[in-house]
Write a protein that binds this DNA or RNA. Structure first.
Lengths: 152, 152
DNA sequence: AATAGATAGTTCGTATGCGAAGTAAAGGGG
DNA sequence: CCCCTTTACTTCGCATACGAACTATCTATT
Protein backbone atom coordinates (compact mmCIF):
# COMPACT_ATOMS: atom_id res chain seq x y z
CA UNK A 1 0.00 0.00 0.00
CA UNK A 2 1.06 3.51 -0.63
CA UNK A 3 2.33 5.60 2.23
CA UNK A 4 -0.36 8.11 2.94
CA UNK A 5 0.81 9.58 6.23
CA UNK A 6 -2.67 9.67 7.54
CA UNK A 7 -1.73 11.39 10.77
CA UNK A 8 -1.46 14.79 9.17
CA UNK A 9 2.32 14.86 9.08
CA UNK A 10 2.72 14.76 5.33
CA UNK A 11 5.69 16.43 3.75
CA UNK A 12 3.67 19.44 2.64
CA UNK A 13 1.06 19.38 5.33
CA UNK A 14 -1.88 19.13 2.94
CA UNK A 15 -2.95 18.99 -0.65
CA UNK A 16 -1.61 17.01 -3.55
CA UNK A 17 1.97 17.41 -2.32
CA UNK A 18 3.11 18.32 -5.78
CA UNK A 19 6.64 19.20 -4.73
CA UNK A 20 7.08 15.86 -3.07
CA UNK A 21 5.51 13.91 -5.90
CA UNK A 22 7.58 15.75 -8.47
CA UNK A 23 10.72 14.81 -6.62
CA UNK A 24 9.76 11.19 -6.21
CA UNK A 25 8.59 10.76 -9.79
CA UNK A 26 11.80 12.25 -11.13
CA UNK A 27 13.96 9.94 -9.04
CA UNK A 28 11.96 6.89 -10.03
CA UNK A 29 12.26 7.69 -13.72
CA UNK A 30 15.96 8.32 -13.32
CA UNK A 31 16.37 4.96 -11.59
CA UNK A 32 14.30 3.25 -14.28
CA UNK A 33 16.64 4.53 -16.98
CA UNK A 34 19.63 3.31 -14.98
CA UNK A 35 18.10 -0.13 -14.82
CA UNK A 36 17.67 -0.39 -18.58
CA UNK A 37 21.09 -0.72 -20.14
CA UNK A 38 24.37 -1.42 -18.42
CA UNK A 39 26.39 1.75 -18.23
CA UNK A 40 23.41 3.88 -19.15
CA UNK A 41 22.26 6.67 -16.91
CA UNK A 42 19.66 9.32 -17.55
CA UNK A 43 22.19 12.12 -17.74
CA UNK A 44 24.47 10.23 -20.09
CA UNK A 45 21.62 9.19 -22.33
CA UNK A 46 20.54 12.81 -22.50
CA UNK A 47 24.03 13.91 -23.43
CA UNK A 48 24.36 11.28 -26.13
CA UNK A 49 21.07 12.29 -27.67
CA UNK A 50 21.85 15.98 -27.48
CA UNK A 51 25.29 15.55 -28.97
CA UNK A 52 23.86 13.72 -31.94
CA UNK A 53 25.64 12.00 -34.77
CA UNK A 54 27.31 15.17 -35.92
CA UNK A 55 28.56 16.31 -32.54
CA UNK A 56 27.75 19.57 -30.79
CA UNK A 57 29.49 22.51 -29.19
CA UNK A 58 29.58 22.50 -25.41
CA UNK A 59 28.05 25.95 -25.40
CA UNK A 60 25.03 24.50 -27.18
CA UNK A 61 24.70 21.46 -24.96
CA UNK A 62 24.21 23.40 -21.75
CA UNK A 63 20.99 25.07 -22.85
CA UNK A 64 19.82 21.91 -24.60
CA UNK A 65 20.11 19.83 -21.45
CA UNK A 66 19.41 22.67 -19.07
CA UNK A 67 22.72 22.11 -17.35
CA UNK A 68 25.14 24.64 -15.97
CA UNK A 69 28.73 24.64 -17.17
CA UNK A 70 30.14 22.74 -14.18
CA UNK A 71 27.54 19.98 -14.42
CA UNK A 72 28.07 19.63 -18.13
CA UNK A 73 31.83 19.59 -17.74
CA UNK A 74 31.64 16.79 -15.21
CA UNK A 75 29.12 14.82 -17.23
CA UNK A 76 31.37 14.97 -20.27
CA UNK A 77 34.33 13.90 -18.14
CA UNK A 78 32.46 10.83 -17.00
CA UNK A 79 31.23 10.03 -20.48
CA UNK A 80 34.78 10.37 -21.76
CA UNK A 81 36.01 8.04 -19.06
CA UNK A 82 33.31 5.61 -20.15
CA UNK A 83 34.53 5.90 -23.73
CA UNK A 84 31.30 7.36 -25.09
CA UNK A 85 32.42 10.80 -26.25
CA UNK A 86 35.51 12.82 -27.07
CA UNK A 87 36.37 16.50 -26.75
CA UNK A 88 37.62 18.31 -29.86
CA UNK A 89 39.02 21.80 -29.79
CA UNK A 90 37.16 24.42 -31.78
CA UNK A 91 39.62 25.56 -34.45
CA UNK A 92 37.91 28.93 -34.62
CA UNK A 93 37.74 29.66 -30.87
CA UNK A 94 40.42 28.69 -28.40
CA UNK A 95 37.96 28.64 -25.53
CA UNK A 96 35.33 26.44 -27.09
CA UNK A 97 35.09 22.68 -27.45
CA UNK A 98 33.08 20.31 -29.54
CA UNK A 99 31.81 17.03 -28.22
CA UNK A 100 31.63 14.11 -30.61
CA UNK A 101 30.51 10.53 -30.17
CA UNK A 102 32.90 7.62 -30.23
CA UNK A 103 31.91 4.41 -31.92
CA UNK A 104 30.68 3.06 -28.59
CA UNK A 105 28.87 6.34 -28.04
CA UNK A 106 27.04 5.98 -31.33
CA UNK A 107 25.83 2.55 -30.37
CA UNK A 108 24.85 3.71 -26.92
CA UNK A 109 22.98 6.62 -28.45
CA UNK A 110 20.86 4.31 -30.55
CA UNK A 111 19.99 2.30 -27.48
CA UNK A 112 19.27 5.46 -25.55
CA UNK A 113 16.84 6.66 -28.18
CA UNK A 114 15.16 3.30 -28.18
CA UNK A 115 14.93 3.36 -24.41
CA UNK A 116 13.56 6.88 -24.40
CA UNK A 117 10.82 5.87 -26.79
CA UNK A 118 9.81 2.91 -24.69
CA UNK A 119 9.99 4.94 -21.50
CA UNK A 120 7.87 7.71 -22.94
CA UNK A 121 5.27 5.19 -24.01
CA UNK A 122 5.17 3.80 -20.52
CA UNK A 123 4.85 7.28 -19.06
CA UNK A 124 1.83 8.29 -21.07
CA UNK A 125 0.09 4.93 -20.90
CA UNK A 126 -3.37 5.19 -19.44
CA UNK A 127 -3.59 8.94 -19.84
CA UNK A 128 -5.49 10.81 -22.50
CA UNK A 129 -3.76 13.14 -24.90
CA UNK A 130 -5.39 16.02 -23.07
CA UNK A 131 -4.04 14.87 -19.77
CA UNK A 132 -0.56 14.34 -21.12
CA UNK A 133 -0.72 17.74 -22.69
CA UNK A 134 -1.75 19.27 -19.36
CA UNK A 135 1.12 17.52 -17.62
CA UNK A 136 3.61 18.76 -20.19
CA UNK A 137 2.20 22.24 -19.97
CA UNK A 138 2.44 22.18 -16.21
CA UNK A 139 6.03 20.98 -16.26
CA UNK A 140 6.93 23.70 -18.72
CA UNK A 141 5.19 26.28 -16.55
CA UNK A 142 7.17 25.14 -13.54
CA UNK A 143 10.36 25.46 -15.51
CA UNK A 144 9.44 28.91 -16.72
CA UNK A 145 8.22 30.16 -13.35
CA UNK A 146 11.46 29.25 -11.65
CA UNK A 147 14.17 30.31 -14.07
CA UNK A 148 17.82 29.76 -13.32
CA UNK A 149 19.54 32.64 -11.59
CA UNK A 150 21.61 33.43 -14.65
CA UNK A 151 18.65 33.56 -17.00
CA UNK A 152 16.66 35.82 -14.73
CA UNK B 1 12.96 32.13 -25.89
CA UNK B 2 12.77 28.55 -24.90
CA UNK B 3 15.30 26.14 -26.28
CA UNK B 4 13.42 24.05 -28.79
CA UNK B 5 16.25 22.25 -30.53
CA UNK B 6 14.60 22.75 -33.84
CA UNK B 7 17.08 20.59 -35.71
CA UNK B 8 15.53 17.39 -34.48
CA UNK B 9 18.21 16.70 -31.89
CA UNK B 10 16.02 17.05 -28.82
CA UNK B 11 16.83 15.02 -25.75
CA UNK B 12 14.09 12.52 -26.43
CA UNK B 13 13.98 12.80 -30.15
CA UNK B 14 10.30 13.79 -30.32
CA UNK B 15 7.17 14.37 -28.36
CA UNK B 16 6.59 16.26 -25.19
CA UNK B 17 9.91 15.15 -23.76
CA UNK B 18 8.30 14.28 -20.49
CA UNK B 19 11.42 12.73 -19.01
CA UNK B 20 13.43 15.80 -19.73
CA UNK B 21 10.77 18.20 -18.50
CA UNK B 22 10.25 16.20 -15.35
CA UNK B 23 13.93 16.44 -14.60
CA UNK B 24 14.15 20.14 -15.30
CA UNK B 25 11.01 21.02 -13.36
CA UNK B 26 12.19 19.07 -10.34
CA UNK B 27 15.57 20.80 -10.33
CA UNK B 28 14.01 24.20 -10.69
CA UNK B 29 11.64 23.64 -7.79
CA UNK B 30 14.49 22.34 -5.69
CA UNK B 31 16.53 25.43 -6.47
CA UNK B 32 13.55 27.66 -5.71
CA UNK B 33 13.26 26.18 -2.23
CA UNK B 34 16.97 26.70 -1.69
CA UNK B 35 16.56 30.34 -2.59
CA UNK B 36 13.83 30.91 -0.03
CA UNK B 37 15.35 30.75 3.41
CA UNK B 38 19.00 30.72 4.32
CA UNK B 39 20.01 27.24 5.34
CA UNK B 40 16.84 25.76 3.88
CA UNK B 41 16.99 23.05 1.28
CA UNK B 42 14.20 20.96 -0.15
CA UNK B 43 15.41 17.77 1.47
CA UNK B 44 15.86 19.38 4.88
CA UNK B 45 12.49 21.09 4.75
CA UNK B 46 10.96 17.73 3.90
CA UNK B 47 12.67 16.10 6.84
CA UNK B 48 11.60 18.81 9.26
CA UNK B 49 8.00 18.51 8.16
CA UNK B 50 8.02 14.73 8.26
CA UNK B 51 9.62 14.64 11.70
CA UNK B 52 6.93 16.90 13.09
CA UNK B 53 6.64 18.47 16.51
CA UNK B 54 6.53 15.12 18.24
CA UNK B 55 9.50 13.59 16.47
CA UNK B 56 9.47 10.41 14.43
CA UNK B 57 11.24 7.08 14.17
CA UNK B 58 13.82 6.82 11.41
CA UNK B 59 12.09 3.70 10.15
CA UNK B 60 8.98 5.81 9.57
CA UNK B 61 10.79 8.68 7.91
CA UNK B 62 12.21 6.64 5.07
CA UNK B 63 8.82 5.64 3.62
CA UNK B 64 7.39 9.10 4.38
CA UNK B 65 10.07 10.87 2.36
CA UNK B 66 10.63 8.03 -0.08
CA UNK B 67 14.27 7.85 0.87
CA UNK B 68 16.50 4.85 1.28
CA UNK B 69 18.31 4.28 4.54
CA UNK B 70 21.66 5.70 3.38
CA UNK B 71 20.09 8.88 2.03
CA UNK B 72 18.09 9.38 5.18
CA UNK B 73 21.09 8.72 7.38
CA UNK B 74 23.14 11.33 5.56
CA UNK B 75 20.32 13.85 5.54
CA UNK B 76 19.91 13.50 9.28
CA UNK B 77 23.66 13.87 9.72
CA UNK B 78 23.61 17.16 7.86
CA UNK B 79 20.55 18.40 9.68
CA UNK B 80 22.21 17.51 12.97
CA UNK B 81 25.32 19.40 11.96
CA UNK B 82 23.06 22.33 11.12
CA UNK B 83 21.54 22.08 14.57
CA UNK B 84 18.02 21.31 13.35
CA UNK B 85 17.44 17.83 14.73
CA UNK B 86 18.78 15.33 17.24
CA UNK B 87 18.94 11.55 17.34
CA UNK B 88 17.47 9.79 20.37
CA UNK B 89 17.87 6.08 21.01
CA UNK B 90 14.71 4.01 21.07
CA UNK B 91 14.50 2.60 24.59
CA UNK B 92 12.54 -0.38 23.33
CA UNK B 93 14.80 -1.32 20.40
CA UNK B 94 18.56 -1.01 20.41
CA UNK B 95 18.70 -0.73 16.64
CA UNK B 96 16.14 2.02 16.21
CA UNK B 97 16.42 5.78 16.57
CA UNK B 98 14.01 8.62 16.97
CA UNK B 99 14.58 11.96 15.36
CA UNK B 100 13.38 15.04 17.23
CA UNK B 101 13.51 18.71 16.40
CA UNK B 102 15.72 21.15 18.23
CA UNK B 103 14.45 24.61 19.04
CA UNK B 104 16.03 25.90 15.85
CA UNK B 105 14.49 22.97 14.02
CA UNK B 106 11.03 23.88 15.27
CA UNK B 107 11.41 27.40 13.98
CA UNK B 108 12.80 26.19 10.67
CA UNK B 109 9.88 23.79 10.39
CA UNK B 110 7.36 26.58 10.71
CA UNK B 111 9.14 28.50 7.99
CA UNK B 112 9.34 25.38 5.84
CA UNK B 113 5.60 24.82 6.13
CA UNK B 114 4.97 28.43 5.25
CA UNK B 115 7.31 28.15 2.27
CA UNK B 116 5.68 24.93 1.12
CA UNK B 117 2.27 26.58 1.17
CA UNK B 118 3.48 29.52 -0.88
CA UNK B 119 5.34 27.28 -3.28
CA UNK B 120 2.35 25.05 -3.78
CA UNK B 121 0.20 28.05 -4.53
CA UNK B 122 2.68 29.18 -7.12
CA UNK B 123 2.79 25.73 -8.64
CA UNK B 124 -0.92 25.42 -9.22
CA UNK B 125 -1.46 29.01 -10.27
CA UNK B 126 -3.07 29.28 -13.67
CA UNK B 127 -4.18 25.66 -13.74
CA UNK B 128 -7.66 24.36 -13.12
CA UNK B 129 -8.41 21.90 -10.35
CA UNK B 130 -8.90 19.25 -12.98
CA UNK B 131 -5.53 19.92 -14.50
CA UNK B 132 -3.78 19.91 -11.15
CA UNK B 133 -5.53 16.71 -10.32
CA UNK B 134 -4.38 15.18 -13.60
CA UNK B 135 -0.82 16.24 -12.89
CA UNK B 136 -0.90 14.76 -9.40
CA UNK B 137 -2.43 11.58 -10.73
CA UNK B 138 0.25 11.34 -13.38
CA UNK B 139 3.06 11.87 -10.90
CA UNK B 140 1.60 9.21 -8.65
CA UNK B 141 1.28 6.86 -11.60
CA UNK B 142 4.92 7.41 -12.46
CA UNK B 143 5.90 6.66 -8.91
CA UNK B 144 3.80 3.52 -8.84
CA UNK B 145 4.91 2.28 -12.25
CA UNK B 146 8.56 2.47 -11.34
CA UNK B 147 8.77 1.12 -7.81
CA UNK B 148 12.00 0.94 -5.91
CA UNK B 149 13.89 -2.30 -6.27
CA UNK B 150 13.22 -3.24 -2.67
CA UNK B 151 9.49 -2.66 -2.91
CA UNK B 152 9.15 -4.67 -6.09
C1' DA C 1 19.52 -21.45 25.22
C1' DA C 2 21.90 -21.53 20.50
C1' DT C 3 21.64 -20.29 15.98
C1' DA C 4 19.80 -18.73 11.63
C1' DG C 5 17.44 -14.99 9.58
C1' DA C 6 15.33 -10.54 9.46
C1' DT C 7 15.56 -5.64 10.55
C1' DA C 8 17.63 -0.80 11.59
C1' DG C 9 21.34 2.09 10.64
C1' DT C 10 25.89 3.29 9.04
C1' DT C 11 29.74 3.62 5.86
C1' DC C 12 31.71 3.78 1.33
C1' DG C 13 32.10 4.67 -3.49
C1' DT C 14 29.76 6.75 -7.36
C1' DA C 15 26.62 9.86 -10.01
C1' DT C 16 24.45 14.09 -10.43
C1' DG C 17 23.97 19.05 -10.02
C1' DC C 18 24.80 23.73 -7.93
C1' DG C 19 27.32 28.13 -6.78
C1' DA C 20 31.75 30.40 -6.19
C1' DA C 21 36.05 31.13 -7.87
C1' DG C 22 39.78 30.54 -11.17
C1' DT C 23 41.90 30.29 -16.09
C1' DA C 24 42.26 31.27 -20.76
C1' DA C 25 40.85 33.15 -24.98
C1' DA C 26 38.00 36.65 -27.57
C1' DG C 27 36.34 41.42 -28.28
C1' DG C 28 35.92 46.39 -27.85
C1' DG C 29 37.48 50.87 -26.72
C1' DG C 30 41.18 54.10 -26.04
C1' DC D 1 48.63 47.91 -29.59
C1' DC D 2 47.25 47.62 -24.55
C1' DC D 3 43.59 47.09 -21.09
C1' DC D 4 39.10 45.84 -19.52
C1' DT D 5 35.11 43.15 -19.98
C1' DT D 6 32.88 39.19 -21.58
C1' DT D 7 32.67 34.45 -22.71
C1' DA D 8 33.82 29.37 -22.40
C1' DC D 9 35.33 26.01 -19.48
C1' DT D 10 37.39 23.95 -15.39
C1' DT D 11 38.06 23.16 -10.53
C1' DC D 12 36.44 22.86 -5.89
C1' DG D 13 33.41 22.21 -2.09
C1' DC D 14 28.86 20.94 -0.94
C1' DA D 15 24.19 18.63 -1.10
C1' DT D 16 21.53 14.90 -2.57
C1' DA D 17 20.59 10.06 -3.54
C1' DC D 18 21.66 5.23 -4.87
C1' DG D 19 23.47 0.34 -4.33
C1' DA D 20 26.66 -2.73 -2.01
C1' DA D 21 28.52 -4.14 2.02
C1' DC D 22 28.96 -4.00 7.05
C1' DT D 23 27.48 -3.83 12.18
C1' DA D 24 24.37 -4.40 15.74
C1' DT D 25 20.17 -5.89 17.48
C1' DC D 26 15.98 -8.38 17.53
C1' DT D 27 13.03 -12.70 16.37
C1' DA D 28 11.87 -17.08 15.39
C1' DT D 29 13.00 -21.88 15.27
C1' DT D 30 14.77 -25.71 16.94
Amino acid sequence: MTVTNSEGERPTGRGPRLVYLLNVAQRRVQAAIQGEGEGTTAARAGLLMAVGERGAAMAQLGPMLDLGAPALSGLIDRCMKAGLVERRPDPGDGRAWFVVLTEAGRKARVQAIEGARALNARLIEGFTDNEVEAVARWLEAVRDRFPREKDR
